[in-house]
Amino acid sequence: MKVLVIQQKMIGDVLTSSILCEAIKKKYPSAELHYLVNSHTVPVVENNPFIDELVLFSSEMEQSKLQFYRFLKEIRKAKYDVVIDVYGKISSNLMSYFSKAPKRISYHKKHTAFLYTQTLERLKKPEHDCSLAIENRLKLLEFLEIPFQEITSKIYLTQAEIASAEAYVTTSNIDFKKPLFMVSVLGSSEAKTYPLDYMASLLDSLVAENKEAQFLFNYIPKQEKEAREVYEHCLPITQKRIFFSVFGKSLREFLAITSHCDAMIGNEGGAINMAKALNIPTFTIFSPSLKMQNWFGEKENKNHKAVHLSEFIPYQEEDFVAAKKKPSKYYLKFTPSYIVQPLHDFIANLSL
């Protein structure tokens, strides 16, 4: 059996959907499994033992109709038996249909259902206390007679990558005997970023509780201005605990550095998902516009903690809609005073 799993775009989505590859390989060890992803997301699925081949979709293919058509012809030429379209957008709709695979699986949408042989209505509530992101993905495998099973995404670093990161961190005067936290200071957009001064206040509270705490910031060079703003909002005593210039020059370097941290704290997004895949405890601040159950399940409570504004003030369905239109208004309500105690409880449970 030759299987193609399609998950384009965001790093967090690509990482999460990789659980399908593991589930399929465990049920059908002899299956040839290909994973179609955007080129820039490769680092999070590199060395994954459940993926036989990565099929890469580039920005050039996305922008050129001719290149995209050639890509579709290559997919058809591959002669897949099964195509699982997790992405479910126009490009992946066409990839699935053009594959002519006998079994084409995706989520149900009225205007695209005819392109697939089997479609699935998304769950609105979790059935197994996992996040909807995980449960809806695994439910697609019911068409392959694979029942639900608890699988979490994993990132596979090499020993050389881990050792190199350890050497880099050590030579940066960071003490592994003291608590080390990676901070996701920025979300994927302004609408998913906790106010910078509020984030600084949270870091100040952690240092007040534990003066040996050390912090690394997760940011890329073009985000340095915003990351530095968080640093500048911090108290001087906190600034001394932030190793601002220590960061991964590539995504794999960031992952290797994160693997040496005691926890990841900060904005919900790809960085949090990557930390989970490295088995690093996480404390996540969700955007007021997002529904927490989509990306956080009850079964994660042991090693992970997440907070959402709706836990602290009255919240209706219309508030999610309003928060998407005016995120800053709702973020301002989500003051550090709500988060400090849950954050301190999370750190206390790490047994550092």
Rank of each mutant, 00 (worst) to 15 (best):
N136G: 14
N136A: 13
N136W: 14
N136D: 15
N136C: 14
R137F: 03
R137I: 03
L138C: 06
K139V: 02
K139L: 09
L140D: 02
L141C: 06
L141G: 06
L141F: 08
F143W: 08
F143C: 01
F143V: 05
L144W: 06
E145G: 03
E145K: 11
I146W: 00
I146C: 05
I146H: 00
P147V: 11
Q149D: 15
Q149M: 12
E150Y: 15
E150V: 15
S153T: 10
S153H: 14
S153E: 14
K154L: 08
K154H: 11
I155V: 14
Y156S: 02
Y156P: 01
Y156K: 04
L157G: 12
L157Y: 11
Q159W: 06
A160C: 01
A160D: 09
E161Q: 15
I162L: 15
I162F: 15
A163H: 13
S164A: 15
S164I: 10
A165Y: 02
A165K: 00
A165S: 11
A165R: 00
E166W: 02
E166T: 04
Y168A: 12
Y168R: 14
Y168G: 04
V169Q: 12
V169K: 13
V169H: 10
V169C: 13
S172Y: 11
N173S: 15
I174K: 00
I174P: 00
I174V: 14
D175S: 09
K177S: 09
K178G: 01
P179Q: 09
P179N: 09
L180Q: 12
F181I: 09
F181D: 03
F181K: 04
M182H: 07
M182W: 07
M182S: 12
M182F: 11
V183K: 06
V183L: 08
S184K: 04
V185W: 03
V185P: 02
L186H: 11
G187F: 00
G187Q: 01
S188E: 11
E190H: 07
A191L: 03
T193M: 02
T193K: 02
Y194K: 01
Y194P: 05
P195H: 08
L196E: 03
Y198N: 12
M199Q: 09
M199H: 03
A200G: 04
L203Q: 10
L203G: 10
L203A: 00
L203C: 07
D204C: 07
D204A: 01
V207W: 09
V207C: 08
A208V: 12
K211P: 03
K211Q: 12
K211A: 11
E212D: 10
E212A: 05
Q214M: 12
Q214P: 02
F215C: 02
F215I: 04
F217Y: 11
N218S: 13
Y219G: 10
I220C: 08
I220G: 09
I220K: 13
I220F: 12
K222L: 10
K222Q: 15
Q223S: 06
E224I: 14
E224F: 10
E226S: 09
R228D: 00
E229I: 03
V230Q: 02
Y231T: 05
Y231P: 00
E232T: 07
E232A: 10
H233E: 02
H233T: 01
C234T: 13
C234Y: 05
L235T: 05
L235D: 04
P236G: 05
T238D: 00
K240W: 03
R241Q: 15
I242H: 06
I242V: 13
F243Q: 06
F243I: 06
F244W: 04
